[in-house]
Computed example of a mutant assay.
Amino acid sequence: MTRAELYDLVWSKPMTEIARQYGIRDQHVAQACDAYDIARPRAGHWQRVEHGKSVETAALDNKNHSPETIIVIEPAPGKPGGLQRGDYGDAAKRCAA
């Protein structure tokens, strides 16, 4: 998925739900966010949302990476999960386990 798509995803639902949806660990989602300068919701964000309280959403910083940069999260060879970095242009890559 693109950086912009991952940004939208992490601000739309908790990372544990994202990880479960894609069959990966939430730590790998967090690593991808950190590697590509995607701000994540702070601790307590989803509890505040659940209780109808106001929350702040950080903007996507495009200083170091383009919003169209493709991010692939998949298990590294010989490891139970990992992050592969790269800009694959128009390739239709999706998160995979």
Score class of each variant (00 low, 15 high):
78 G>F: 11
64 N>T: 12
10 V>I: 11
10 V>P: 01
51 H>I: 06
48 R>S: 10
87 D>S: 08
36 Y>S: 03
81 G>S: 11
14 P>T: 03
18 I>K: 00
7 Y>G: 00
23 G>V: 02
38 I>M: 03
63 K>S: 15
74 E>P: 04
70 I>H: 04
20 R>S: 15
96 A>M: 11
27 Q>K: 12
30 A>T: 14
20 R>A: 15
21 Q>W: 00
58 A>V: 11
25 R>F: 07
59 A>E: 15
50 E>W: 08
56 E>Y: 11
61 D>S: 09
14 P>V: 02
92 A>R: 13
85 R>T: 15
46 W>A: 09
81 G>Q: 09
45 H>L: 04
19 A>P: 02
79 K>Q: 12
18 I>Q: 00
41 P>E: 01
33 C>S: 04
32 A>E: 01
53 K>L: 14
53 K>T: 07
6 L>V: 14
57 T>H: 13
84 Q>E: 14
47 Q>G: 05
61 D>H: 05
41 P>T: 03
40 R>F: 02
81 G>M: 06
60 L>G: 05
86 G>T: 03
21 Q>V: 06
52 G>I: 10
51 H>F: 14
74 E>Q: 15
76 A>Y: 09
54 S>T: 12
36 Y>N: 12
90 D>V: 13
7 Y>R: 04
60 L>P: 04
62 N>F: 00
5 E>A: 10
88 Y>V: 09
88 Y>Q: 10
73 I>Q: 02
11 W>F: 07
46 W>V: 10
29 V>L: 00
38 I>D: 00
92 A>D: 15
65 H>K: 07
29 V>A: 00
57 T>F: 09
78 G>R: 09
60 L>T: 05
5 E>L: 07
42 R>M: 09
14 P>S: 06
34 D>H: 12
30 A>N: 12
50 E>V: 06
13 K>D: 00
72 V>C: 07
65 H>A: 04
75 P>A: 08
67 P>R: 02
80 P>C: 07
9 L>T: 09
89 G>P: 11
80 P>Y: 12
33 C>T: 01
43 A>Q: 14
60 L>S: 04
12 S>K: 08
42 R>F: 08
31 Q>W: 00
74 E>W: 02
22 Y>I: 00
8 D>C: 05
88 Y>I: 08
19 A>T: 06
41 P>N: 01
10 V>Q: 01
11 W>N: 03
83 L>W: 01
73 I>W: 02
88 Y>T: 09
72 V>H: 09
78 G>A: 10
64 N>P: 04
55 V>F: 04
14 P>I: 02
54 S>H: 13
17 E>W: 11
63 K>T: 15
55 V>R: 06
12 S>I: 03
10 V>M: 02
36 Y>P: 00
88 Y>P: 09
97 A>F: 10
34 D>W: 08
8 D>I: 02
